[in-house]
Simulated assay, not measured.
Amino acid sequence: LKSCTISKTKSGKYYISILTEYEKEIKPVSIQKVVGLDFAMDGLYVESEQGEKANYPRFYRQSLDKLAKEQRILSRRKKGSARWEKQRLKVA
Rank of each mutant, 00 (worst) to 15 (best):
Q62E: 11
A40Y: 02
E21P: 06
V29W: 02
S30E: 15
K10P: 13
R77G: 05
T9D: 12
W84E: 01
W84H: 00
A40E: 06
E47N: 12
A92V: 02
F59S: 07
I31L: 14
E49G: 09
S17C: 08
E52L: 13
A68V: 10
A92I: 01
F39Q: 03
K90H: 07
S81G: 00
V46R: 10
K78M: 14
E47V: 12
V91S: 00
T5Q: 11
F59Q: 08
S30L: 15
V34D: 13
L74M: 03
Q62R: 08
Y56R: 03
W84T: 00
Q71T: 11
G12Q: 01
E49W: 09
Q62F: 07
E23R: 11
E47K: 05
S30V: 15
K10L: 15
S17V: 10
E85C: 08
Q32S: 12
R83P: 05
K8R: 15
G80K: 05
K8F: 14
A54E: 05
R58I: 04
S48H: 04
K78G: 10
L74H: 00
L67Y: 04
K86E: 03
K86Y: 02
E52Q: 12
F39K: 04
K86H: 04
S11C: 11
E49H: 08
Y22S: 13
K78A: 15
S48W: 01
I16H: 00
L89P: 02
K53P: 08
K13W: 09
G36Y: 08
D42K: 06
R88S: 12
T9K: 09
C4D: 15
Y15I: 12
S81W: 01
R83L: 14
S3A: 14
T20M: 13
R76V: 05
V91W: 01
I26Q: 12
A68M: 07
K79Q: 09
K8A: 15
Q62D: 02
I73E: 06
L19H: 03
G12W: 02
T9F: 12
S7E: 11
L44K: 01
E23T: 08
P57T: 00
K69F: 08
S11D: 13
Q87C: 03
V46C: 05
D65R: 05
E85S: 08
S17I: 11
A54K: 03
K24A: 15
Y14P: 00
S7W: 07
A68T: 04
L19C: 04
R61Y: 14
I16G: 05
A68R: 08
Y60S: 05
K8M: 15
V35M: 12
K10W: 14
K79H: 07
Y56A: 11
G36P: 07
S48M: 03
V29I: 10
A92F: 02
K69S: 02
A54Y: 08
R72Q: 15
S48D: 07
F59A: 07
T9S: 14
Q32P: 11
R61S: 06
K33V: 04
A54L: 04
S17R: 03
A54P: 02
V35N: 14
A68H: 02
E52W: 10
L74D: 01
K2Y: 13
I16K: 04
L64H: 04
Y56S: 13
R77H: 05
E52D: 07
R76D: 08
L1S: 14
L89M: 10
